Computed example of a mutant assay.
Amino acid sequence: MTLPVLALTTGEPAGIGPDLTLMLAASRMPLPGRVVAVGDPDMLAERASQLRLAVDIKVLNPGQVVPDPCAGVLPVWPVALQAQALPGELNPANASYVLATLDRAIEACRRGEAGAMVTAPLHKGVIIDGGHAGFTGHTEYLRDACGVEEVVMMLATRLDTPTGVHDLRVALATTHLPLREVADAITGQGLARVLRILAMDLERYFGIAAPRIAVCGLNPHAGEGGHLGLEELEVIAPTLERLRDEGMQLDGPLPADTLFTPRHLEGVDAVLAMYHDQGLPVLKYAGFGRAANITLGLPIVRTSVDHGTALDLAGTATADTGSLRVALEVAAEMAAGQEMAR
């Protein structure tokens, strides 16, 4: 079977994104797809020299076929830096470059040149400092670039437990919001959209028919019957009941401090947390470095790493490629699932 083309954006050029890309290219471990980096070829060649990695940077022309994986060779769709990039030294002048790599990968996926895009970490602050004041992250940028109303951020990892290997998937009802804005952002309409997207894409990409989703409450103890907040009674529970009537399998709203225990997770395909730091610390504690960040609800497949730019590790050859490898594997799995669903 032909391996899918996976467009890998190299992220913040001062961070570990270029390093991870080159380290995977140099590795003799097999890759799950035909990986093509999206970034500046000269920067990648210079970083390979700094890392003492023997990697042949192979620039691809428009329309040129992405070759099968070959250890020591990195195919690249070129995007030019705006300014010199030094490991560990952020430069706002390269903010537009980072966004241009995303645009190139999005275009490739929408035109069928790639089956999925995988993103190395970027630095939100330097992109904002570079003149993009409304930028809040990969997830929202992809939503707007693809022209969809709603996307869902989900992280996934695979856990070894006494009863076998289990997938832990945690999706978010809200993403990058200040905590004081979260309660107002959780509406019945928005929550229903998120749950429908989550259920649809669990089936479309992962082959899970009628997925079972456990839903966190917003407040401690899921509101304690209204004594610790009314969002569960007024918004979350009625929305879940309405969706159950449509045939969805939903548990909750459940207290987040007990939901993430083996007994409550048994038979659950995904957990929906109400906000970023309610669900993701649990998943990252359980599987940091072995998890992938997935954007659901897009017309294309997108995964990413579970970590940031790690500026202090850039150029040192000590970064861990584990999460990027998982992100590539999940992207290939999702691309295959999407192809089968057509």
Rank of each mutant, 00 (worst) to 15 (best):
A108F: 03
A156E: 14
I127L: 14
Y97C: 04
E12A: 06
Q249C: 12
V126T: 13
E246T: 07
E46V: 11
V215C: 06
G33E: 13
V194A: 05
A171Q: 09
V235I: 13
A25G: 15
L259S: 10
A314T: 00
P69G: 07
G337L: 00
L24K: 02
E329D: 14
D257I: 00
L179P: 11
F135S: 15
F260N: 14
L20G: 02
T239A: 06
P32Q: 00
Y97T: 01
D40H: 01
Q64F: 03
C70I: 08
N94W: 02
A192V: 00
A214M: 04
P162W: 03
A14L: 05
E89C: 10
Q278F: 07
V55E: 12
V98G: 09
L142M: 09
W77K: 00
A45D: 11
E89T: 06
I236E: 13
V66Q: 08
I57S: 09
D184K: 08
N293A: 08
R111M: 06
K124M: 10
C70P: 05
R110Y: 00
G225R: 01
L259G: 10
L142R: 11
L240G: 14
M117S: 09
D277L: 04
V76Y: 05
V271F: 05
A209S: 08
V182K: 05
V235L: 04
H138P: 15
L60N: 06
K58W: 13
L168I: 04
A133K: 11
V118A: 09
D103A: 12
G190V: 01
A171T: 04
L240Y: 08
T258N: 07
A48D: 15
E232H: 06
T163A: 09
H176L: 02
H176R: 00
L8R: 07
A317L: 04
V126I: 14
D167E: 06
L191R: 06
C109S: 04
E203D: 12
H264E: 15
A331D: 11
L53S: 07
V215D: 11
L202P: 14
C216G: 12
A292F: 05
E241N: 15
S27R: 03
Y205P: 10
L179H: 13
L202R: 07
L240F: 07
L218P: 13
G130H: 11
I208N: 07
P253V: 08
A332C: 08
V182A: 05
R244K: 14
A25S: 12
V326W: 06
A317T: 00
L142G: 12
D306W: 01
T318E: 08
A192F: 07
L159R: 09
T136A: 15
V326F: 09
G252L: 03
D103L: 08
E107P: 03
V38L: 10
P92T: 01
T161Q: 11
